[in-house]
Amino acid sequence: MNKDYRWTVLFLSSLVGWFFWREINHFLTPYHLSLYLGGLLITFGILRLPLYSGLIHSALVGAWLDAAAPTYPFGTGILVFSLLHLLVFTLRQKIPHDTSAWMILAALLINFLLFLFWTVYHYPLQIDPQGYLWRSLVDLIISQIAITIVAVWFFSLQNSLLHLCRMPLDEDSPLSP
């Protein structure tokens, strides 16, 4: 039985990230802009945790985001996040996944794939496809910029929380404070 509970700490840190993400979106609403940071929340778990511990974390984050989503059945996000987790996990041995620059690149890629999936998924519902694509492009750009800015802080926060809870990573992370 897998007794690795580091996903609990990562999930708590993801909730912190989710809280700030929602607050920023609240203040961006009058400008018709929004951020999507789903990829940022799961990147650390995919790149630094063992397979099943990270997979539980990704599925839980998917469920957390799914609950408030009105346009698709509950469970879709869990499946998408889990599949993406497995896909990136199989690639992680081939890239130097423990340096901060690679982690940021991975976060950008994961976020892009998730954003692309949801954009295609919601496309048939739109009455103004041109406006929808324009809005999607602007939202994607600002989301990727936001991830580039906050990713290092967020990964350090996750690493620090793991150290605080006496559940450090197997090898010492370059992002540790």
Binding site: H32, P70, H122
Partner: peptide
């Protein structure tokens, strides 16, 4: 309490 106007839904 919270405005949520994303690319995909507005609520």
């Amino acid at each position: 309490v919270q405005r949520d106007s994303t690319t995909w839904w507005q609520e």
